[in-house]
Computed example of a mutant assay.
Amino acid sequence: MGRHTHEGEDAFPRAPTQEEWEAMGPEERERVVESLPGEVTWDEMAMPEGDKHLRAKVRTLDLLEGYFSHQRRKVYVGAELPIYYPGERRFAPDLLVVLDVEAHEREKWVVSHEGKGLDWVLEVHVGGDRKKDAEYNVERYARLGIPEYFIYDRARERLEGYRLPESGVKRYERMEAKQGRYTSEVLGLELEVVNARLQIWAGNALLLESGELVERMREKLEEVQRRVDEEARLREQETRLREQEARRREEAERRIAELTAELERLQHREE
């Protein structure tokens, strides 16, 4: 079996190199994937950064999952998933997207096993040293060939975007915002920070959280119910009017019959 834990620089688990992977048989590969931990240690993770970090991450995950769940294209969206590139120290980005793969739940992403690497990464920065997100990860993610990388800096409430200019290039170019929005060519979406919230647009449509969608659906349901109730009230009113009209007609017909009968009696009496 290929060695999937490298000593020296660090002792954190690593996936085999691609050369080692290709030399393995199917059963050995399966054992290696199973042996790679599905969690990262405290030594590898940044210190907890509180609600600002958590809510931004959870909200963005919700927006992306909600959007891609309605697209025909298969897309996997994950958060803090241990990522194993061949021969590389593992890492766990705040958010990640991989296109054209099954969206089932995973506890880790082993690039050699999955057959492809990440397509999009977002890191949420709240406090402390920005060097990891703004310098080290910019170099690392570009070297790994991740097409796009975004940093949502909650301390400054601003967004930074990086993109590989073409396939095979291992150095990012910084994106330029247009009217405050960054275009993600990978996702086919636009991102911007407005009022301390990361907003995502699909064309002219603003993506909504699950809770916001539920509230919109509730409002629509209430509006439909109001229309149904109003139509029912109008139908009931029409029914009452028809019943009143029928009663008046019956009364008029009864009165005509009485008058006709009275007229006939008078005519008979004169005769």
Rank of each mutant, 00 (worst) to 15 (best):
G2Q: 10
F12Y: 13
F12L: 14
P13H: 05
A15Q: 02
W21A: 05
M24I: 13
M24C: 13
M24W: 06
R29A: 13
R29I: 06
L36W: 02
P37K: 14
T41G: 06
M45K: 12
A46W: 01
P48I: 10
E49L: 04
K52Y: 05
L54K: 09
R55G: 02
R59I: 10
L61V: 03
D62P: 04
H70S: 10
V77R: 00
A79R: 09
Y84V: 10
E88W: 12
L96K: 04
V110W: 03
S112M: 13
K116N: 05
H125T: 04
K131F: 11
A134Q: 05
A134V: 02
N137G: 03
N137V: 01
V138A: 08
V138N: 05
L144S: 08
I146G: 00
E148H: 06
E148D: 07
G161Y: 01
E166W: 02
S167W: 06
V169T: 11
E176F: 02
Y182N: 01
L187D: 12
G188R: 06
E190D: 15
E190C: 08
L191T: 01
L198W: 00
L198K: 00
L198M: 10
Q199T: 12
W201E: 06
A202M: 04
G203D: 09
N204K: 15
N204I: 07
A205W: 05
L207Y: 02
V214W: 06
M217L: 13
R218K: 14
E219N: 09
V224R: 15
E231W: 07
E243I: 02
R249P: 06
E250H: 06
L259C: 09
R265S: 11
